[in-house]
Amino acid sequence: MTSRVTLISPAMNGGLRQARFDDGRTPLDDSGTAQARAAAGTLPSAADVLISPSLRCRETAEALGLRGSAVPELAGLEMNRWRGRTLDEVTAVEPESVNRWLTDPGCAPHGGESVRDFCDRVARWLTAAQDLDGRTLAVVEPEVVRAAVVHALGMPVAAFWRLDVAPLTATELSGRSGRWNLRLGRPLAAPHTG
C-alpha cells in the first residue's frame, strides 16, 4: 500500500510578510485569499483533508474549497511568549536567546516547544499517516512542512532551518514500507484557460 500525503502551505498573510511568529489568529490578507480562491480545484481528490488549527490554515483550506478537520498534532511550532512578535522585535531584546534557538534544535528559550520536540511530533504524525490508504491533503503551517521533510528524508534536525517553504505551495510525500519519496513545493496556480 502506498500512502500519499500532500502538504499545502497557507496563503499569504500579514504575519508571513512581517516574519511574525504566528499567534494562530492572523487572517489571510486580500491577496492571499484571492490567490487561494484562484487555485481552488487544482488539487487532486483525497480520502482525508486535515488542517492545522491556525486561522490562516483554516482560511486557506476554505478558499481552496477544502473541508476537513483541524488536527492538533499539525499545529505550528509553539512559540509561547514570542507568539505574535516579529523575529526582529525578539532579536532586538533577546539576541542571545534567538541565536541559541536558531543554532540548537533542543533549545526553547521562548518557553514553548523546541525544534527537536516539534520535529518529533510531526514525525510521529507522519509515521501514523503512512498507514492510511489513499491520498491525504493537509493544509499546514510552513514549519510543519519543514519538519515533515526533515523526517521523510532522514535529515538531521539542524537542517530544519535550511528549508524554505513558499506560501500556497504543495509538497508531496509518497510512502511505503517506512520509506518516503518527496516532491517539493509545487506552486498552486489557477488552471489555464484557452
Rank of each mutant, 00 (worst) to 15 (best):
T127K: 06
T127L: 10
T127F: 03
T127N: 12
A128V: 06
A128F: 07
A128C: 12
A128S: 14
A129F: 01
A129V: 01
A129M: 08
D131S: 08
D131A: 11
D131E: 11
D131K: 10
D131W: 02
D131T: 13
D131F: 00
D131Y: 03
L132I: 14
L132W: 12
L132V: 15
D133L: 10
D133V: 13
D133M: 11
D133W: 11
D133T: 13
D133S: 14
G134R: 03
G134F: 04
G134N: 09
G134Q: 05
R135Q: 12
R135W: 12
R135K: 13
R135Y: 07
T136V: 14
T136G: 06
T136W: 03
L137R: 11
L137T: 12
L137M: 05
A138V: 09
A138D: 06
A138T: 07
A138L: 08
V139A: 01
V139M: 02
V139D: 02
V139C: 02
V139K: 03
V139G: 00
V139T: 00
V140D: 10
V140Y: 10
E141M: 04
P142E: 08
E143I: 11
E143L: 13
E143Q: 14
V144W: 00
V144R: 00
V145F: 00
R146Y: 15
R146W: 14
R146C: 14
R146G: 13
A147F: 05
A147L: 01
A147Y: 04
A147W: 01
A148G: 07
A148Q: 07
A148V: 07
A148H: 04
A148N: 04
V149L: 15
V149Y: 03
V149F: 01
V149E: 05
V150H: 01
H151T: 03
H151R: 07
H151P: 07
A152L: 04
A152H: 00
A152K: 01
L153G: 02
L153F: 02
G154E: 05
G154Y: 01
M155K: 14
M155A: 15
M155F: 10
P156A: 09
P156S: 14
V157F: 08
V157M: 03
V157A: 05
V157C: 06
A158F: 11
A158D: 14
A158T: 15
A158P: 00
A158Y: 08
F160G: 08
F160K: 01
F160I: 09
F160E: 08
W161I: 07
W161Q: 13
L163D: 07
D164S: 12
D164R: 10
V165K: 02
V165C: 01
A166F: 05
A166K: 14
A166V: 08
A166L: 15
L168P: 11
L168Q: 09
T169W: 03
A170E: 09
T171Y: 02
T171Q: 06
T171N: 05
T171P: 13
T171C: 10
E172P: 03
E172K: 03
E172Y: 00
E172T: 15
L173A: 04
L173V: 12
L173S: 08
L173Y: 07
L173N: 05
L173F: 02
S174D: 12
S174Y: 04
S174R: 07
G175Q: 06
G175S: 11
G175A: 06
